[in-house]
Write a protein that binds this DNA or RNA. Sequence first.
DNA 1: TCAAAAGTATACTAGTACTATAGACTTTAT
DNA 2: ATAAAGTCTATAGTACTAGTATACTTTTGA
Lengths: 151, 151
Amino acid sequence: MRLSKRGEYGLRAMIVLAEPVDKNSMPVVQIKEIAQREQISAKFLEQILLALKNAGLLHSKMGVGGGYYLARSPREITLGQIFRVLDGPVAPIKCVSQMSYEPCGCPDEQTCGLRLVMGDVRNAIADILDNTSLADVNKRQISVRKKLGIK
Amino acid sequence: MRLSKRGEYGLRAMIVLAEPVDKNSMPVVQIKEIAQREQISAKFLEQILLALKNAGLLHSKMGVGGGYYLARSPREITLGQIFRVLDGPVAPIKCVSQMSYEPCGCPDEQTCGLRLVMGDVRNAIADILDNTSLADVNKRQISVRKKLGIK
DNA sequence: TCAAAAGTATACTAGTACTATAGACTTTAT
DNA sequence: ATAAAGTCTATAGTACTAGTATACTTTTGA
């Protein structure tokens, strides 16, 4: 039940890109900067951000002073959207996938016990990922920091 | 967020092995029989059941009339136990694993937003898998069949 | 007693996915 | 014009997946 490095890095990068910036500074962040902050290979991150751009979650600006920025407000981008771009369906088994169903080959799908339970698992995961926006993540981070009295 | 074939087949086999049998027939089932019923390569299933046996979830009887049977009552074997033997930790990322924690390399684990959310995901999955026994699965199957009016 | 049924154990393999790395190209600000 | 930045595609090493293969051990019962 693993999140790939691709997914991990992409989610972390998106969370960084959603961080509230001081007003009237253009919220464009460079790959290199994210890579450094999060200790990720910049070249690998390149591919990941490109995929997120092609999926419409990021926009970019080329050339000097360029970089990436969110295509929509952090409130409107969920972790589920990001996850699906980078790691595919949320469901642990294809036959319970809402977004990309496929039969799994069990003798009788309707009464397959595994399918029943894995359906619950899928729903539990999707519930969290699809109802947590980048803004929510930032809010939580801030409240944790406050609680710990840091920064 | 995928369940491997190994995990899938193992869980399916365990569910079969937990099926209520007519009283006083020894509940020993052969690999071949499970493989046929569930459409799984018998040789592959062999390895899987062996792993489950070595983990103490199954017992076996060698020789003619032998086979596998559950080491404990279906009420006492959870899907979480089976899953962990075959597919490893439930957590989507190592730094939120209860059973086999490892740092994941983010700059500050305490305030890592991804970690906070993935912790929730881990708990949601573990909640289901660790609180669903083989007996529960069978009960659900039966109730689904009843509802559908089959068999 | 010995053959057949059944599990045990390990090695091997083809294919695919993962995790990058590399390099050539395009766009843009100054 | 040049350097900074993203774009795009190819490639490589490694690990994992999903099996196959093979030789063995244990047990039963004819």
